[in-house]
Computed example of a mutant assay.
Amino acid sequence: MNETDSPLPPDELGHRLVEVFDLVGPLYRRALRKVEQGEAIEGASVGVRSVLDLLRRQGDMTVPQLSRIQALSRQFVQRMVNDAAARGWVQIVPNPAHQRSSLIRLTEEGRALITAVLDREHTLNRQVGGDLTDAEVRACVRVLREMLRTFDHVDVED
């Protein structure tokens, strides 16, 4: 193991991760703007797109589950679900495990929509340069996952 493969001391790690935060904020905001531009094409807002994609990946979920995973308030997620339901992209069905918290289910129309959105996003993501390797992308995901875990205790309902 060479020097660059050794874990960083906490003080140095803290300073280096500021560089990541400085990039993640602008990246996130620019990516949101690009997704919002697609709203004119598909008609799905960024919030609705997130709900549809999560349902596509995870299957039926409740609003509290959707909000917890996305670190968003239940009220915001409920508005996104209501919007998606009004457009026929999701349906709200009884939850056998919990009478007061219905399940949100992706409809065929919703599945077709999120597939079109993801296809458009994939085309854009293919344009990323830098000759990135699988190991570099895996390392990036690992770093971001650890950073996210640091803030698991933050209450999103405020």
Rank of each mutant, 00 (worst) to 15 (best):
R57W: 02
V90Y: 07
L106F: 05
V90L: 04
A31H: 09
V93D: 09
V24N: 07
V18D: 05
E19Q: 13
E109S: 15
I114W: 01
E19T: 15
L103G: 04
G88Y: 07
V90Q: 06
R126D: 14
G38I: 06
R111I: 07
G38P: 00
V48P: 03
E109Q: 15
F76D: 08
P94I: 05
V93T: 15
S45Y: 01
L132A: 08
V18T: 14
I69D: 01
R111L: 10
V93K: 05
L52D: 06
V128A: 09
L72P: 01
S73E: 01
Q58R: 13
M61E: 08
A85M: 03
Q99R: 15
Q99K: 14
G129Q: 09
E108L: 13
R30G: 09
A97S: 15
A85F: 06
N82T: 14
G129T: 13
R87N: 12
L27G: 11
G59T: 02
A84R: 07
L17M: 13
R120P: 04
H15D: 10
H15Y: 11
L118M: 13
I104R: 07
R87C: 06
L72T: 09
L118Y: 08
I69T: 04
E121F: 00
G110Y: 03
E19F: 13
R100K: 15
V18G: 00
G59R: 02
N82P: 01
G47Y: 00
R29N: 05
E39A: 08
Y28E: 15
D60T: 01
G59E: 00
S102K: 10
Q99Y: 10
G47A: 02
L132T: 06
Q65F: 01
A112H: 13
R30T: 14
N125M: 09
R120A: 12
R49D: 03
G129I: 08
L118W: 08
R120Y: 08
R87G: 08
Q127A: 10
L66K: 01
V63I: 11
L106H: 06
Q78C: 10
L54Y: 00
T62I: 00
L72I: 12
M61F: 03
Q99C: 11
R68Y: 11
A85N: 11
L52F: 00
E42T: 15
H15P: 02
K34V: 11
L72D: 04
N82C: 05
E121S: 04
G130H: 00
G88T: 05
V20Q: 02
